[in-house]
Structures are given as C-alpha cells and as structure tokens.
Design a protein around this nucleic acid. Structure first.
Lengths: 197, 197
DNA sequence: AGTGTCAATTGACACGATGTCAAGTAAGAG
DNA sequence: CTCTTACTTGACATCGTGTCAATTGACACT
C-alpha cells in the first residue's frame, strides 16, 4: 500500500482511520489495527496509552490532514446572514462524511468511556461555535425569528446539524448528499429566520 | 422494596429497567442486574438467553406496562392535519422520557450487536408509521409544502422527532420539556406545512 | 410419609479482549 | 564496536459473558 515508509505512529493512525471508516461505530480491536498497520499489537501501546486515546488521536490526525479550515471558517464572503448560514451548513455537511467513521465510533464510546466523552464534547462544542457565529450574524441583521433568542436558536441549529441527523437522513433514509444539504438548509432557514422576502 | 412477591422474571425485568434508567446508554452488567433483582447471576440465564435479549425483553415489558396506546394512537379527535401533527408530536415527546433509559442503551448496543440492531430498527419503524400517518393526513388536506413528497416529509418528521434530538435539546442543552415540545412542533410545522393562515 | 419435578443456587470453567511486563532483536549513530 | 532506540515476542492478570454440572428446597401428587 501507500504507507510503507511512514513513521510507525502515522501508520497506526492511518490504519485506525481506515478501519473505523470501514465500520463506523464499531470500535476496532487493537489486534486488528496492529495487523492492518503492519506492527505488533504492543507497538500500539508504545505510541498511545490505550484504545480510547488512540481513537482520539485519530480524530486529531484527521483535523491535521484536512486542515482545520476545510472551508468551515470561510464564511467571510457571505453577503447576508442567511447566505452565511447556508454556506456554513453546506461546509459542515460536506465535512461530515469525511469524519463520519471515526466520529461515530467516538460517539458510541462516549457513553461508556469518560475520556471519549470529554473528547467528543469538546469537538461538538467547537462545532457549536460555528453555529453560534452564524446565528449571531443573523441576529445582527434582525433576521432571527422574534420568538427565538440567540441561544435557543443556536441550540436548534446545532441539533439540526447533528451527525446523528445526517446519518439518519443519508444512511438510513438513503438521501443523496445534495438533497440532504438542500432540505436541511431549508428547514434551518424556515425555523430560524423571518420569511425570506 | 415493592418487588418482593413478583415472579422472578418480572423482578429481573424491573431491575433491568431501573438500572438502565439510572444510567442510560451504559449496558449494566449481568451481575449488577442480578444483585438488584435479588437473584443469582445464573438465574438471569434461566429466563433470558443473553444480555441483549434481556434488554429487548425489557423494552417489551415497558410496552406492556405503558399499554402500547399511551396516547400515541389517539389522533382520532384531531380537527385538522396540522392539529393532528401537533398532537402526535406532543404524545411522542411525552413518551420519550419514559423509555429513554432502556431505549438509549439499545441504541448504543445496536452498533455492535445484530440482535439489538434488529430490535431497534423494528421499534423505530413502528414510530415511523406514526409519522407517516400524520403526514398522510396533512397531504390529504393539501397542507404539505409543494416541494415535499410524503416520503421525504415522513423522513424529515421522523428525524426531527428522533430520540437523539430529544436528548440533545433537553439533556445536553437543558431545555425543559414544554419548551422542547413547543419548539420542535414549530419547526415541524414550519418545515412541512404551508404557512398556517 | 415418599417421590418426583421445577426453580433457583453454587462454584467452576472457557473464551475473548484490554492492558502490562520482561526479555530479546535489529538497525543506526557515536 | 558498542550504545541507544524502536519494535517484537510471548507470557500474564483482569474483567465480563456465557456454559455446565451438581446441589438445594419447596410444592404437588398419590
């Protein structure tokens, strides 16, 4: 494959990534990861204290590979609050499939593992910032529905854009990604903003 | 406690219920359940083939206790499609907290356990029927947004009403239940129906 | 009483997975 | 040519599930 010459740590991370992607939500066994990376099982413990930390490190590795920006920050050029919201949703929506495998695994693990829970909460908090920023922009233009305060609106957007919802609509219901983006954007705009004139 | 005189099987189910409620998503250990039920660990295997089946049986026991109706079916008296939708959402929303502990556990387990996955899918499919019925009623009155076909609309409603979303808004964001009901109803109506005149 | 049945207990065990430990190996740098 | 560092090998403790076999105790039938 491609990863013959990479440092061991990176090979492990790549192997983990691939394995989690190929079976989202199922926490791969350490022995499987070792086999895939072409190292001994013990080598994993030389680089990561335990499985949870290995998975968390894998999400950080993904951030590194994608570059945190990945379009998520570039809402600068938006010409209106609504437009900015739309762009943010699209950017996030297109980010989800890339991280889904690993993220889903962490999502499942957070229920039983405190470290996973913290890592996941941090991650979701970051994403919430993006939502909050989009809502603030709307509010600044008085586009927010009058019955919604910015916090509630952020909660709603944050929830609408959850990975679970993306999974249900695309994976379970079989929606193609463009449809997901179109519909979820429409729902967000209809729920959060005053009728677009 | 209250369960001294009940048949062993029921005591086990009650113990499982309480344990899963007290720590949703965390699959209690067989030995804990046994202790709580006041029976030996092996007694559990006398009544249920394995842990997954015990949990599934617990959800069925809950259905029995609540009576499947529990208000979920009584949409008869609705005076309009929109009203019916509202009532359905409220009924389901009030049902969720009762089943949350056990449901969440099954939800987590479905990722790694085929039997849990099937049981969960069945359950969600039943709930989807309710969504579909509400959408059909809307459609019959031509209240559905023209760009939505009934299937897509059902997908959307089904997703909006997911247990994950309820959890995120009430547990994580701290919304009180009435606020959840009010907001999620508003979102559903705004996203699915023509502007209420 | 006497016997059989059924539910539950007791204690032991195999298995699979994580994480730990200690000793060995191999390759590169001084 | 040896020292160091990274990795391997194989063994082991631990924990939880699920299985098994032998035992107990209550109740019912006659």
């Amino acid at each position: 494959m491609s990863s013959q010459n990479l440092p061991t740590r990176t090979r492990i991370l790549k192997a983990t990534w691939e394995l989690l992607d190929s079976n989202p939500g199922v926490a791969a066994r350490m022995s499987d990861i070792a086999k895939k990376a072409g190292v001994s099982r013990q080598a994993l413990y030389l680089h990561f204290p335990n499985r949870t930390e290995l998975f968390i490190a894998t999400t950080k590795y993904q951030d590194e590979v994608f570059g945190i920006q990945d379009g998520l920050a570039e809402t600068r050029s938006a010409k209106s609050g609504t437009d900015r919201l739309r762009r943010y949703i699209e950017a996030w929506a297109n980010h989800i499939p890339k991280i889904f495998g690993v993220a889903k695994t962490l999502m499942v693990m957070k229920e039983t593992d405190a470290d996973a829970a913290t890592a996941w909460a941090d991650r979701m908090q970051d994403m919430r910032e993006g939502c909050a920023a989009a809502i603030t922009a709307l509010d600044a233009e008085d586009l927010l529905k009058p019955e919604l305060d910015p916090d509630s609106a952020t909660d709603i957007l944050w929830t609408l854009l959850s990975i679970s919802n993306w999974e249900q609509l695309t994976v379970t219901c079989g929606w193609p990604q463009p449809r997901y983006i179109e519909r979820i954007s429409a729902i967000a705009i209809q729920s959060l903003t005053l009728n677009e004139a």
